[in-house]
Design a binder for these strands. Structure first.
Lengths: 193, 193
DNA sequence: CTGCTACTAACACGACTGTATCAGTAGACT
DNA sequence: AGTCTACTGATACAGTCGTGTTAGTAGCAG
């Protein structure tokens, strides 16, 4: 009954997500969360089963937010370079900063505690994005080692760049770095549908 | 008296560092740490002042470990491409994985809690490494916007790549991505001493 | 009305947290 | 012998943690 969705549960996940975006996962304990979102530990435990259940629910909500980039992506046109640029334009927006900080925290937590509520978040988020980028590569290279290496590099630049950006805030320098890297990619390739 | 170094303090920092490399910073609480390293909460508080003091000491130790790459670096020869490759050869070694996981955790923690014991770790580690990479660039480009963008991209690739590596363990794919990226850098430039 | 579902409120339990206090010891220096 | 420094050990306090329990309500279906 704890994984089931319900009206109230959805509301509380949304509120808890907003709370965690501000406070981070680290400091999440039931009582403060409950107080902040207008609930109680009893209710949270009823709806989510446990603290880990709540964290899993919020993490799912965060993942869903992360994958909202896909709405603006359209991997069928423009090839890897254009898609990479669209992703970057999403990543660099200041309003996404809290989500990226939270992403970083989740990634780190998953790395040294794979048994925790984060599960295989780190591994999954890498392969998910590699798949997304792969969809923008021409069919001829997509399943080759060079093709995998290329999208791996693109992902690495994007990840490294936003890490830099959220730490230093130096948008000009980082933005320039990403754009000049993307320029080196083959442009106007499009995958065959 | 808490920041002062002493024989016993140094031993305990070393032991605590080893412990944190395994357990991560998140789960660090005084009693378990003390027990694991053969000490007690009273002693830890005497030598480090507080839990935050202990964390700062361990983080300092970790930073010192991270900067041990400099011993193998020699930014005076080979230019940015060669230096980047040397850094990558350090990052990709399996025995450095725990340190990189810890680095990621510290970075994330510093991002959403700049007032905590991590201080400005995230910002500092970026600028430190940009400086290191900058030292490998020719003097002619080092202080230009394109030069800064270039070392920013290099750092981004390295960071993104090891994030990928420690999550997926797919050494072949990631290694190939990094090497092929580095190939696109101007080679055999050396900075004027 | 009954009964069911979804949800809420209040309180208690044992474990664990960082911090505090204070008496005590081993070793070196004078 | 005296004193100082560095360190140890034990115990205590107040607070927070996740979890458990139990009783209760509002709304709707029959």
């Amino acid at each position: 009954m704890t994984g089931t969705s319900s009206r109230r549960r959805d509301e509380l996940v949304e509120a808890a997500y907003a709370y965690v975006l501000e406070q981070g996962f680290a400091g999440v304990s039931l009582r403060p969360v409950a107080k902040a979102i207008g609930s109680s530990t009893g209710v949270l435990r009823f709806l989510f089963g446990s603290r880990d259940g709540l964290i899993r629910a919020v993490l799912d909500r965060a993942r869903q937010d992360e994958l909202s980039v896909l709405d603006v992506l359209d991997t069928d046109t423009g090839g890897l370079a254009v898609v990479a640029l669209r992703v970057w334009d999403w990543l660099r927006r200041p309003e996404h900063r809290p989500a990226l900080v939270l992403w970083t925290e989740s990634y780190a937590a998953a790395l040294h505690d794979p048994g925790g509520p984060w599960g295989d978040f780190a591994q999954t988020t890498v392969t998910d994005w590699l798949d997304i980028l792969g969809a923008a590569q021409p069919r001829s290279v997509r399943d080759t080692a060079p093709g995998r290496a290329q999208r791996t590099a693109v992902l690495a630049v994007l990840r490294g760049a936003f890490l830099d950006l959220i730490a230093t805030g130096d948008a000009n320098r980082v933005d320039r770095a990403v754009r000049e890297y993307i320029k080196t990619l083959p442009r106007f390739e499009h995958p065959i549908r």
